[in-house]
Write a protein that binds this DNA or RNA. Structure first.
Lengths: 241, 241
DNA sequence: GCAAAAGTGTTTTCCGTACACCCATGA
DNA sequence: TCATGGGTGTACGGAAAACACTTTTGC
């Protein structure tokens, strides 16, 4: 009856929809290889290692499932209710954590934004598969709700935080920035008004370069200003006890 | 080298300032009775019991230090960094948790709003003392930053959530409601505009009664509408794993 | 009547939205 | 020249701030 502590992550990337449609959110899931929910998909994660902090544990799980470093990483919530009625109580990962059936599990969930790994070393870990956030399979535990919560947080935060940075390359056009916002919010935005608002925040500035090769007027390229980057968010203090 | 899990709480109440001034935020702290930081003030809390969920653990700690039930309770953040350099690693409570020097500690912090316990059974637990949030003593660990974070969350949330309810009796005047907002925000608000905005949200409705006994025009009394109460916040799903 | 707070109305400013319009490029 | 998206200007409407003003009580 030991206390088990696990760290899981909702990892989000932006890619074209399955039918090569508009940009959409995708996330990797891992197939559980033990009860409960054996065979179901679940959030990637694992037990908290002795030698690392919570955030580092989230980075490790992220790296082992996607091979990527997150451009943004933030704690979402700590779950530790006892109302896990039908769940036997196994660990926070779909993977190979060593949780015992009888253990009490508290799990801390992070959410991460990563760049689409187009030509990246497409690390295809076993039992890992990417799904569009709008077409998820049935998930283990209440991970569906956890993901919904993460998506809600992302949608809210993109409105007042330069978080879209995490999805973009160093230089980008305002149309690309707008496409990120549209994908996250799930609706189209007025290009004219979006431009003004984006520039008004002062988070973004022109580089002086232009993107050539389009079949229309070449758009200016922009970058995020150094002050507004923030890989780790501002949120809370350091540690505590 | 077991993994220790503790739950602490930032408990906030509204009372007149020390010199009988305007309303201010106060919070209870407990004096630590063991190293590290022995003798320092710290957030109340304790180890996570085997038999209760995270939120229940927070309620228990709250009850044992103040004897009060929170009108509002929400998770703040989970701390588990390894950068606790000078701290030996003892438990999350200022009180008598059983943490060992060598233990690794992850602590989950809640924030709670309670009614001022004017005539309440003023439970005066030993080693517990209330301080104005604007005049805190030196605290153990990084609890000062944790409290600042909780205050920032409260200030932000009072702007879009009917959270002020937690500080008020069943029936109240709009002046009292405004005083709560002013105390939390630390600045005065225009009575006319505040009234309109408060009513426009629809969270509050007149009871039809009036408050007698003032030395001026008797103000109407209001109550929060049932839909907008919410002791537990909306936030995240249930459990997870 | 006077002080004080309740409560209403009005004006101004600001911000988000909608949308018309011009600009620059490739084809 | 036309199509396409980049980029600018402008008008409308709602919300918030500032503040004048009326109302109702106790003293």
């Amino acid at each position: 009856m030991a206390l088990q502590l696990a760290v899981s992550s909702v990892i989000l990337a932006l890619r074209p929809a399955p039918d090569d449609g508009p940009l959409t959110l995708w996330l990797p899931l891992v197939r559980r290889i033990r009860e409960p929910y054996e065979g179901s998909w679940a959030l990637p994660g694992g037990p908290l290692g002795e030698a690392c902090g919570l955030e580092q544990a989230a980075r490790d799980a992220l790296s082992s499932t996607t091979g990527l470093d997150p451009a943004y990483l933030e704690q979402l919530y700590a779950f530790g209710g006892l109302d896990r009625s039908l769940a036997g109580g196994a660990g926070g990962a779909g993977g190979d954590d060593g949780a015992d059936q009888a253990d009490r599990v508290v799990s801390i969930v992070y959410w991460a934004l990563v760049q689409a790994e187009e030509d990246q070393a497409a690390v295809r870990a076993h039992n890992v598969e990417w799904f569009p956030a709008s077409a998820l399979p049935d998930l283990a535990f209440d991970h569906t709700q956890v993901i919904d919560y993460a998506l809600a947080r992302l949608r809210a935060k993109i409105g007042y935080s330069p978080i879209a940075h995490a999805f973009l390359p160093a230089e980008f056009t305002l149309a690309e920035l707008r496409a990120v916002h549209e994908a996250v919010l799930g609706r189209e935005l007025d290009p004219a008004n979006f431009r003004r608002q984006a520039l008004a925040t002062g988070a973004v500035e022109p580089t002086g370069h232009r993107l050539q090769g389009t079949r229309h007027r070449p758009p200016s390229l922009y970058r995020y200003r150094a002050e507004s980057v923030a890989t780790s968010p501002t949120p809370p203090p350091r540690s505590a006890s």
